[in-house]
Amino acid sequence: MTITMVKAPAVSISGLTVAYKTDAGELPAVSQVDLELAAGTITGLVGESGSGKSTLALSLLGAVQKPGRVTAGSVVVDGIGDMAKLAGEELRTVRGAKIGYVFQAAQNSLNPLKTVGKQLLDLGKAHKVRDLKGLLRHAKDLLDRMGLNADRVLDAYQHELSGGMRQRVGIMFALVLNAHVLVLDEPTTALDMITQANILQIVRDVHKEQGLTTLVVTHDVGVVAEVAHKIAVMYGGRIVEHGPVTQVLAEPRHPYTRGLIHAIPRLTGDISAAKALPGTPPTLGTIPKQGCVFRERCALRMEVCETVEPPAQRMLDGRTVACHAVKEGAA
């Protein structure tokens, strides 16, 4: 895949820790995460529920919800600055205009009492768009290109749209103000197979046409294989493996990534070859305080895993892996 985008900014997350206030004190949902979203790439962020991937995605918009807060680290977006430090009007005007966020289709991301068109005008006014007619034209253009009847959609209420239509409307809202960073939260969840394929095609297309840096958050490795250039695997609030999709999927190095990929049944071959990972992922309260967060479910568990958190090591092929058992090929 060639990446030739000039407008797209790079996003660089470093040392990001996001903690939630609970009765047991502040517990980190995202811990010491370093992640680079290269300009113009699509990165797939994969993880099970509770792995912290949604929290990480929200931190890209400086929108970690209470009782959570960024306790350390930074999220620097080219041309904007550190999202973790922005506040007030500055933060508000960046959201939507510079960074777009698309909810999953099953979530009601539209005001049920207003038509899509009226909400589009609200968006325009909030961002002081002078040429509202132009905004409308741009929205219609985007909707048309995604294969929707734009006039009908703009005149519709949320309950009159199907899941696939809502997803496209969500993408339109995220991009209509020419944002160049796009975050998609579970873009294919709750959609049928054909709609999923359509949406992924649209994600690829708009990514290219608009010149975006895109983050796709999903629990579905298949989605990442389909659209992303890079994959970041998250477990217990850490990025355990990060690298080019083709290499990571072909030869996963971290035992969790391996387990994740081997859990997918193949179309050909023995169905029992697909093995579910034993155990359950940790929740906010059960993430180990020290040592490797994955050791409870790990086949390669060693003594060092109990006490020392594995650092992210850069491999020769450019990927990073955070595992004590992965040594060969380390740079």
């Binding site: 918009l61 929108a63 005007t93 960046v94 959201r95 939507g96 909810f103 049920p112 609200d122 909030a126």
Partner: peptide, 16 residues
């Protein structure tokens, strides 16, 4: 409801 978070992430004013 999610639409309020969505509105926040779209940068709508607090009045809206």
């Amino acid at each position: 409801d999610d639409f309020l978070l969505a509105a926040e992430l779209r940068g709508l004013t607090s009045l809206t």
